[in-house]
Amino acid sequence: MTNTNHRWIVRAIPYLWMLVLFFIPFIIVFKISLSSPEIAQPPYSPTFDPFVDGWSETFARFAEFTSANYLRLFVDSIYVSSYLSSIWIAGSSTVMMLFIAYPLAYGMARAPKSWRPTLVMMVILPFWTSFLIRVYAWISILSEEGLLNSMLLSLGIIDEPLVILSTNAAVYIGILYSYLPFMVLPLYSALEKMDESLIEAAKDLGCTNIQAFWKVTFPLSLPGVIAGCFLVFIPAVGEFVIPDLLGGSDTVMIGKTMWEEFFNNRDWPAASAVAIALLIVLMIPIMIFQNNQAKQQDMG
């Protein structure tokens, strides 16, 4: 067709935009992660420039600074423990989330048809209201003189206020609360598509309710389970707002460490190295997620 000649413009504009504002910045982050911190504006000095020093010199320095900035990530225990505890907190809250979200999504998918759009809407609505507000709401509930403690005290369930705010428990609650829609919606769409006569067939063939669930329903909902887990796990690993507002000083998560490195210590090369290392940790889950997503989009 002759009139398809200009179609490439439609994709060239967003393509160029994302290259300049998404792809190239990562290369810059990588470059700065290999430079040394400096008290200046901007607070780093480039340690190599292939166009000035020539490539062999560049590679020599590259090796040197890789050992300087990146080895620090392994030697300094704050980085190692933030990585490990971020992955642990994000991973265990993803598993807990599955237990909370599955019954909710199941209830939605098995609700009368006329109810379903309203129920979906009710799950999405809190997601539209500010993330910061939803985290903030928990501060006044969980604090020592907060609503939860005053309620439990007046009911006589506890004698002295529980310390929940500024602990890891509060971080878990915050993650479970904020990311719940991300898990419920993919689960719901997998469960809703399912043909219910399959379960009847399984029961006719002698399955109990529980057997039918594990042998039919759960395997069929696996694409939703996978999508939901990645949607929760990946952003939760790099979460900053929740550990900062709900967690205590002993809550170390990598997003918070990076923020402090950047805003409080003004060590931009270190913050960049942390970012690159975090990206490498998340690379595999992100790629699996994208593949899964692209496959589902192509199928329609």
Partner: peptide, 19 residues
């Protein structure tokens, strides 16, 4: 590039844009 920012931790996107 279209799907990555959906799950990219905001601290990384923010830092890279600033730099």
């Amino acid at each position: 590039m279209v799907y990555a920012p959906l799950v990219m931790p905001e601290v990384i996107t923010g830092l890279s844009l600033l730099l």
